[in-house]
Amino acid sequence: MSAAALEAERLRRLADVMLPAAHGMPSAGDVSAIAAYLERVLAWRDDLRAPLARAVADLDPESFTVERLAAYHGIDEEAYVALTTVVAACYYLSPVVRERIGYPGQVAKTYDAFAYTAWVAEGLLDPVMERGPIYREAP
């Protein structure tokens, strides 16, 4: 196994601890988050490669826990941020995960630009209007 593959394998195992299968959600490994999206994530965030490699080297998957992750924040904040950003970004790029949390992405929606006339007519603004002006007069 190449060094890069070994690093990815360690990262995959860390990700499974950070995002395990629970509460009806798949684990990071269940959706192949790291394998499928790591390079795409790092294409946007090339600056994270070095601190991510540091985190992967520092944190032993055999003994890794969320408590150790929290403690790592105080040891190497930059590497911590790289790890959490990359793992979360890979996970939430998975269509399976997005569907499970009910997130279709930032989709375009149509609406009636004149729908406001209905809530104005219904009286939603009446309490505001009935108070009258609230600004201060100024010379």
Partner: peptide
């Protein structure tokens, strides 16, 4: 979206492990 939601950009703290999914839900 989900990253802005769970990484410390706006209000709220990061949570990892099984509790992460509970927080998201």
């Amino acid at each position: 979206g989900p990253l802005n939601h769970i990484l410390p950009m706006r209000a709220g703290n990061e949570v990892w492990g099984a509790d992460h999914h509970a927080l998201m839900a």
